[in-house]
Simulated scan of single mutants.
Amino acid sequence: MDKQLRYNDFAGFLTKQFPFKVQKLSVNAGFTCPNRDGSKGYGGCTYCNNQTFNPEYCRTEKTVTTQLEEGKLFFARKYPQMKYLAYFQAYTNTYGELEQLKRMYEEALDVENVVGLVIGTRPDCMPDSLLDYLEELNRQTFLLVEYGIESTDDHTLARINRGHTFACTEDAVRRTAGRGILTGGHVILGLPGEDSEKLIRQAETLSQLPLTTLKMHQLQLIKGTRMAHEFAQHPEDFHLYTVDEYIDLAIDYIEHLRPDLVLERFVSQSPKELLIAPDWGLKNHEFTTRLKRRMEERDAWQGKHCSKKYSIINSDNKNGN
Rank of each mutant, 00 (worst) to 15 (best):
Gln218His: 08
Ser270Val: 12
His217Thr: 02
Ala90Arg: 09
Met104Gln: 08
Pro259Gly: 14
Phe13Asp: 06
Phe53Pro: 08
Gly116His: 07
His217Glu: 00
Phe31His: 08
Tyr42Phe: 15
Gly224Asp: 01
Glu106Trp: 09
Tyr91Cys: 09
Lys272Pro: 00
Leu261Gln: 05
Phe31Trp: 04
Tyr79Asp: 10
Lys3Arg: 14
Leu221Val: 10
Gln67Cys: 04
Pro278Asp: 00
Ser196Val: 14
Leu240His: 00
Glu264Val: 13
Pro19Asp: 15
Val115Leu: 11
Glu106Met: 14
Gln302Arg: 14
Phe287Asp: 15
Phe13Ile: 06
Ile119Asn: 10
Gly190Trp: 10
Thr176Asp: 12
Lys102Leu: 02
Thr94Ala: 05
Asp316Asn: 08
Val118Leu: 10
Asp316Gly: 07
Thr60His: 02
Asp237His: 12
Ile188Val: 15
Ile181Met: 12
Ala108Asn: 01
Phe53Ala: 01
Ala158Cys: 05
Val22His: 11
Asn113Asp: 13
Lys292Thr: 05
Leu282Pro: 03
Lys272Glu: 06
Gln140Phe: 07
Tyr147Ile: 12
Phe74Ile: 03
Thr183Val: 10
His155Met: 05
Thr60Leu: 00
Trp301Ser: 14
Gly320Pro: 07
Asp171Asn: 14
Asn93Gln: 02
Val27Thr: 11
Arg6Asn: 14
Leu157Cys: 04
Asp37Thr: 06
Asp279His: 10
Thr92Leu: 07
Val145Arg: 04
Lys83Trp: 08
Val64His: 08
Val145Lys: 03
Phe13Met: 06
Pro127Ile: 07
Glu56Gln: 01
Gly44Tyr: 13
Tyr42Asp: 04
Lys72Ile: 15
Gly163Arg: 00
Leu98Thr: 08
Asp153Ser: 00
Thr66Tyr: 02
Leu157Met: 00
Asp2Leu: 01
Tyr246Glu: 03
Asn314Glu: 13
Glu56Ser: 07
Leu199Gln: 12
Cys125Met: 10
Gly71Tyr: 00
Leu117Arg: 12
Thr32Tyr: 00
Ile276Asp: 04
Pro271Tyr: 10
Leu211Cys: 03
Arg103Gln: 00
Gly303Trp: 12
Arg6His: 15
Glu107Pro: 05
Ala29Gly: 13
Tyr7Thr: 08
Gly38Leu: 10
Gln218Val: 01
Val145Gln: 09
Gly96Glu: 02
Pro210Ala: 11
Cys48Ala: 10
Glu135Phe: 04
Cys33Leu: 03
Leu14Val: 01
Lys292Gly: 06
Glu230Cys: 04
Leu221Cys: 10
Cys58Ala: 03
Lys309Pro: 00
